[in-house]
Design a protein around this nucleic acid. Structure first.
Lengths: 158, 158
DNA sequence: CGACAATAATTAGTTAGACTAACGAACTAT
DNA sequence: ATAGTTCGTTAGTCTAACTAATTATTGTCG
């Protein structure tokens, strides 16, 4: 999603958007979110694991062992897609599959220690990029971000 | 990028993250950005144009007519990829290609009125989702977001 | 108890969108 | 004028998404 992070210098940009318009705020937040994610994305590439696999692994690490169907649903993909991703993660030793003792049809997929390690290190790298940038802001600005961060989440959860 | 928006309920979540740690802030901002973008994404699907095409169109609408190479660079893809996207947008009547009068090798790609209309309407829908959610916040919270929004962009640009 | 519908995962085949490699056409600098 | 560079395209490959169909197991109902 990199739509519209260049709504900046449009031919007809509003002249006085320092006003309290929600248009302006919505636009800023949208562009800010896009730019921020783009900035931290590089950290994921360093893992050598593709984004969909990394994301599925993240669900397993932070959400615990689960079936293929629930994993697929958490990632917003269909079971066949997740079946392949899991097979590849398994081949690389990042997850393990075992039959569900409660249901002969089902699986229990779990992150291996190696997968867990990869995930946590990736997360650290990602956050490190942000922290480094935060370190360049003034105390007052940091306070402003602190005040707004929970609202950002609340806004999205809506 | 839907990595890690579930770093929330991890087994070892910090007990006191109301402190001023940059770890906490970085994590919140990251998750907030992901959640926010996910929330507005639905608006783009309604256009009936795929995200890569919509994004390229956005560059043309807000950035003005330009060559294929610069368009590709703006989108972070290689020229052959953009060549195809532009061909498809052209087939749908959203952009027009003409030879560059200054350089016989080059093209000038421009959004048609129809493409411009599609883009602007999509943007409005996207922002409408955010604005609707903003409307549910208190005045104090809105002020906090206003204070933080520019910082978000500054953070990412750095 | 047995037939049969429903569910879990996989396999097969298709599509979109990204890449690299290789190309012709046109510009630029010796 | 000719060598090298740059612009866009074509061809071929890869990943990751989908749907449809298959297999194995579970649950239910007559």
């Amino acid at each position: 999603m990199r739509i519209d992070d260049r709504a900046r210098a449009g031919p007809r940009e509003r002249k006085r958007n320092e006003g309290q318009g929600e248009d302006w705020l919505a636009d800023r937040l949208h562009r800010g979110a896009i730019a921020l994610l783009r900035a931290v994305k590089v950290a994921d590439q360093e893992t050598g694991v593709s984004p969909p696999r990394l994301s599925a692994l993240s669900v397993l690490v932070f959400g615990g062992p689960q079936s293929l169907a629930s994993l697929a649903s958490a990632e917003g993909v269909k079971p066949p897609t997740m079946s392949k991703l899991v097979a590849e993660l398994e081949a690389d030793g990042f997850v393990a599959k075992s039959p569900d003792p409660k249901d002969g049809r089902g699986l229990v997929i779990v992150a291996t220690p190696r997968g867990r390690k990869l995930m946590l290190e990736g997360r650290d790298r990602r956050l490190a990029i942000l922290k480094q940038r935060l370190g360049r802001l003034s105390k007052a600005d940091l306070a402003r971000l602190h005040a707004a961060a929970p609202l950002l989440l609340e806004l999205a959860r809506g």
